[in-house]
Design a protein around this nucleic acid. Sequence first.
DNA 1: CGATCAAGTCTATGTTCTAGACCTTCGCTA
DNA 2: TAGCGAAGGTCTAGAACATAGACTTGATCG
Lengths: 127, 127
Amino acid sequence: MNQDNLIPIPFVFEQPCPIRDVLDRIGDQWSLLILQVLEHGTMRFSAINRAIGDISKQMLSKTLRRLEEDGFIRRTLYPEVPPRVEYELTDLGRSFLVPMKGLVAWADDHHRAICEARADYAARAAS
Amino acid sequence: MNQDNLIPIPFVFEQPCPIRDVLDRIGDQWSLLILQVLEHGTMRFSAINRAIGDISKQMLSKTLRRLEEDGFIRRTLYPEVPPRVEYELTDLGRSFLVPMKGLVAWADDHHRAICEARADYAARAAS
DNA sequence: CGATCAAGTCTATGTTCTAGACCTTCGCTA
DNA sequence: TAGCGAAGGTCTAGAACATAGACTTGATCG
């Protein structure tokens, strides 16, 4: 019935799995980008919006809320008119930047190789 | 018209941006998970499927194709019946594991803190 | 009086993901 | 000899999610 005893699988995620839990939250289109932007200091909603450029306000709002929920960022509302809201990294968020910078550096270093791989793939697909 | 000269923004992504290019591809629900699974060696389609557990075949197929396109993994088809297809990391893919392991280690180390942050947030939301 | 600001939310529309049926070709079983 | 199951997918229908853009709120400016 189950193949697992016939064909051994080298690796299976236990469920629930802490890595998956974190990666599922952080591994989306926008979270890493937002954290990267906030590295440069406290920022207001619209400033983050403009820094990223092509994120919708709804998605930004939702992602910020999730990052706040997970303790990566702190949200401070100043009840002025018009309202002012500032976002900044928490200690947890700042500590996350360390492994993330490794990822970003890798991306920077290997971007050319990836582009070449894409060109190769396209060339092979065409033939 | 444009606020950028009135309110300085500490950070703006240039477009096109290599970091965004890589992060947009790798930063999805499944790519990191698949690469992590493949760290343990060459695997067949259905083995990856079972290792991850809750990915749909379509998504797995699509994500594998994208990873292959970007040069992270190599796909080898053995024209037997039934067909056998094996996936393995390329050198590029393996080099990516280095920064990724940092991320995974961080996730492991800080999972508890994140869970606490979530509980705090829920408690504050309830009150 | 009307426009404008910031930080969102709401809505309509469009894109993407999921679950599950289906395809192929062969060997095995009944 | 008819039918089943295997592997690695693809196809389809429906659900979930993302986007663009209008709308809100209340003080301030012209």
